[in-house]
């Protein structure tokens, strides 16, 4: 099962995507703490930029909780266009093709393709700029001696969480390009919960957008699914959330169709689930709310996979699921803060 083990790296990068936005306007401050924050920001910006602007190809390995999964990854940036191709190397064949905000996820064996149009990019900046908090308030960055990863000299950055509500990270960033070569998620005790790394990578390869575009045209004979997310607010759905974990703020709230049997909007039995997402600049937490059903929802559950924790519980007529790469206590805070208004 190649599936699960990939989260840390992506979560970090997803977080890094928030980061520059969250820091907007903060960089000008002088003095000790601000200088520190600018330092963190500078490094994370560099990693973020490299991931979107560089051309690279490599094999990516993720290990968490004793599982190992790998994938072949290509990324091309051609002016304003971004192309991406990812093929899982373990378990069932599954390919992802991305051209800017259009993402195809394809399962060749079962001839199923999920096509998504991403309109979410625009909604992020406004929401994050509204907050005054910065990532520097919750994380501090320390540079360690350089190391070598996948044949490249790398800066080693330790991103330490300043409180117990989030995990720390150790990041290996290519000295030449800034690209993230390896990322570890660390518990408060310093244990590695999840490691993601390139085992080999070529940076600055020739752009081959056609390898992505051609594949995206070949959906003949595929069952094409197009999941729909409709934006909403917790208030509009009759919910309020009091005090969430410090540093986290809501970045999005959507209604989505889900099938309790496990397939997202594939069969007719889909039902609506409310999903609210909270981010602290590095990582994020999802809160799912749906009506409680005896036959679908069992006992409260707490599952751990690598760095990802999942908490499910009943709250009156509702079933709450909280997921994130944060300590379980943080998820508890989210679940406990939910309040039904009507």
């Amino acid at each position: 099962m190649a599936s699960r083990a990939t989260s840390a790296f992506v979560l970090i990068c997803a977080g890094l995507a928030f980061a520059p936005i969250a820091w907007g306007g903060e960089a000008a401050k002088d003095g000790g703490p601000a200088a520190q924050a600018r330092d963190v920001r500078g490094w994370l910006m560099r990693i973020h930029d490299a991931a979107s602007r560089r051309n690279f190809q490599g094999t990516f390995v993720v290990s968490s909780g004793g599982n190992v999964a790998s994938a072949r990854m290509s990324h091309f940036c051609d002016g304003a266009n971004q192309y991406e191709r990812i093929e899982s190397l373990d378990g069932k064949a599954r390919n992802v093709f991305r051209h800017n905000d259009v993402v195809h996820t394809v399962w060749p064996a079962s001839r199923v393709a999920v096509v998504e149009q991403r309109d979410l990019l625009t909604s992020f900046p406004a929401l994050l700029q509204a907050g005054a908090d910065t990532v520097g308030d919750w994380y501090e960055l320390r540079q360690q001696d350089d190391e070598r990863v996948a044949g490249h000299a790398a800066n080693v950055l330790v991103v330490r969480a300043k409180d117990a509500h989030r995990y720390g990270y150790r990041l290996w960033s290519d000295k030449a390009s800034g690209l993230l070569l390896r990322a570890d998620v660390l518990s408060a005790r310093g244990d590695v919960l999840e490691t993601s790394a390139f085992s080999d990578i070529s940076i600055g390869v020739r752009s081959q957008p056609d390898s992505v575009l051609q594949a995206m045209k070949k959906l003949d004979g595929y069952r094409v699914l197009r999941p729909v997310l409709s934006p909403t607010t917790l208030e509009a759905e009759g919910w309020a959330i009091r005090q969430v974990a410090p540093g986290f703020r809501q970045v999005r709230c959507v209604n989505r169709e889900m099938d309790s049997a496990g397939d997202v909007a594939v069969t007719g039995g889909a039902h609506r689930v409310l999903q609210a997402i909270y981010a602290d600049g590095m990582t994020y937490v999802s809160v799912f709310i749906e009506p409680y059903k005896d036959n679908h929802h069992g006992r409260p559950m707490h599952a751990v996979m690598g760095a990802t924790q999942t908490l499910s519980m009943r709250q009156g007529d509702w079933w709450i699921t909280v997921i994130g790469d944060v300590p379980a206590a943080t998820l508890q805070l989210f679940a406990g803060a939910l309040e039904r208004k009507k």
Partner: peptide, 18 residues
């Protein structure tokens, strides 16, 4: 989110039920 590569990677790796 705005970040390219690893995000899609993650999606690919987790959505297996389809």
């Amino acid at each position: 989110t705005a970040l390219g590569v690893p995000s899609a990677f993650l999606r690919s790796a987790t959505v297996r039920n389809y």
